Structures are given as C-alpha cells and as structure tokens.
Simulated assay, not measured.
Amino acid sequence: MTAVTTGSAPLRLRGCTTLITGGGRGLGRCFAEALADAGANVVLTGRDPRTLGEAETRLRARGASVVAVQADLTRAHAMRRAVAEATAAFGAIDVLVNNAGVAGPHGPAWEGDAIEWWHALEVNLHGTVRACRAVLPSMIERRRGRVLNIVSAAGRHRWPHASAYSVSKAAVIKLTENLAAELRPHGVSAFSFDPGLVDLGMTRDHLEQGRIDDRWSDQILEWVRDQRRAGRFTPPERAASALVRLASGSADPLSGRYLTSDDDIDSLLRESQLREQKGGRGR
C-alpha cells in the first residue's frame, strides 16, 4: 500500500489513542497510517492475524506506537477484550474509528441467501454498536472522545442489488445522528464519515476479482469501473487527511453530521456558528 501522509496533520494527535476496527488492511490500514503520522497511538483490531501482524509491523517501521488485537466484531466479548488490551497499553481510548465492514450479497433482496444478507447487518451495524458499547462508557466518564463511523453514499441513496450494504450503512448514519444527540451532554462527539470511492479494501477487491459471471456482481463491477474512468475515485491521501481532521476534534461542533472527504469543513463550521448566533439573537 502506498504510504499516506497528511500534510498539515503531523503531531496534531500526539498522545491521543485511537482504536480502528478492520485496521489490518485496506482503508483501515490507510487510516491507521495517517493517524500514526499525526502522532496518535494506534490500536488495530480485525479477524485476520496475518494482515493485522503485517499492519502492525509496517506501522512500527514508521515509528508508530501500535498494538494489534485480533477481535471479531460479531462477538461482544472480543471487543471488550480489545478495549481492555488497548487501555492497558496506552490508557483510555480517545477516538474510535468504526471501519470494519462487509459488502454483503448482490442481487434482488428477495433472492439469494437470507443468512448472508443478515450477516452484513450483523457486521456493519451490530458490530458498530458493539464497538461503541465497549468504548463509550470510558469516554462518557472522562467527558471527552469522539466516534467516527465509516459510511458510504450507499447509505444516503438507494443502491439496488446491494441492499444489505445500503441498508446497513443507512442504519449506521441514523445511529450516528442519535448517538451524537445522546452524547452531546457528555462532551463526546460522533460523525458519519464517507471517504468516497477509494481504490482500497472492498472496492479494490471487487476490481481485482473482475467478472465472475454473476449478473448482479458484474453489474456493480461495471459501475465501479465507470466511476474510476470518470475520475470519481477519492485519492487515499484526501480521505485520510479528512479523517485525521475529524479525529483531531476541530470539527466537533458538527457532531452528528454526515461528512465526506470533499466537504469544506471550515465553511461548514462557519455556517454552523452563524446559525447558532442567529438562534441566540432570536431567543
């Protein structure tokens, strides 16, 4: 994977501890590298010990403080153990990045394997909830922290023939809105972050797999290829830089929002401040 640097980000997260689910490969590893370059301690979780080990070795070679913990998001005790090991290594977790996810089955929602369809919800939605339940009590107690839930435009717009993925990401976006409202009195922020189409992780897997003579999967493959040809992919550096910005806390007044790599955070913050000022004058 190409090394990712974040420009103005270096050391803005010095001393901060971040936990990244699905951190052994793809976007998770990309985000881990950017957060480490910004000075954060990094805790990686994932199911595959091989990719976790590779990611941990790579980060240590960059001078990062990192711990890798094998943990399956579908098992609540595994996430609690991961948080305990992270806390033992670095102290309390300051930022949770809920990145782990699966694509789910392709095809009409009434066809295909119902168990596979539900498994996507189990990982993408319930896994996010499990990670939050493991991390949030400490954040609430300390009255600081933030949760970054990695989502997709598929959760904002319909995506026929990828309904499990689309529905799961829509649910995570709504979960984030509710979490933000519930956490606001406790000084903790939550965001839905859409990195865009990045040539990593599930997107790259689909491209490298190529056509498999499955109508629905091949149809989605052609759409992804069209997006790439049209220049609509997001560079990993841009996605990572935006995530580091959110992790730093400088966008906390926007807690609860759905944000993308292309958003002008400074403009959104100014708009939010103006709305608050107008609301205050109205009172």
Score class of each variant (00 low, 15 high):
D226N: 03
T17I: 04
V69G: 00
W223G: 02
G101N: 08
A71D: 12
S138G: 08
V67W: 11
I140T: 14
L27D: 12
N98S: 14
R211K: 10
L59Y: 09
T17W: 01
L269Q: 00
A120F: 03
L200N: 02
F90S: 11
W118D: 11
R211F: 13
A36T: 11
E276Y: 04
P137W: 11
T234C: 15
E54W: 10
I150T: 10
R146F: 06
A114P: 12
V123Y: 04
L175P: 01
G256L: 07
A247T: 06
N41R: 13
D72T: 00
V42C: 11
E33T: 08
R204F: 05
G28C: 04
G104W: 06
G145M: 12
V83I: 05
E271S: 15
T21N: 13
Q219A: 15
R228I: 01
Y165P: 09
L11V: 04
P253F: 11
R58C: 02
I93L: 04
A34Q: 03
L136M: 14
T260P: 03
E222D: 14
G210Q: 04
L19A: 04
R204E: 05
D94F: 09
A230C: 03
R50M: 11
P185V: 06
D252L: 09
P195T: 13
P195W: 12
R275Y: 03
L59P: 01
R133V: 02
L254F: 06
G187Y: 07
L259K: 10
T5W: 02
V66Q: 00
G280S: 07
A61N: 13
Q227M: 15
R62E: 09
L179K: 05
R232W: 11
G256S: 08
G24F: 09
G24Q: 11
D37Q: 13
G249Q: 05
S8I: 06
E141V: 02
L259Q: 07
E237Q: 11
Q209M: 14
E237I: 09
R257E: 15
S152T: 13
V188D: 07
L179H: 02
E177D: 08
R130T: 13
A251H: 01
Q227N: 01
G280W: 12
L183F: 10
N41V: 02
H106S: 13
S267K: 06
A32E: 09
V172Q: 03
L52S: 00
A68G: 07
R257M: 14
Q209N: 12
L27V: 03
V135Q: 08
G201P: 03
L73M: 10
R12P: 00
C30I: 06
A180E: 12
S138A: 15
A131Y: 10
T2D: 01
D194I: 00
A71W: 09
H77Q: 13
G26T: 02
A40M: 14
V188A: 02
A190L: 06
S65T: 13
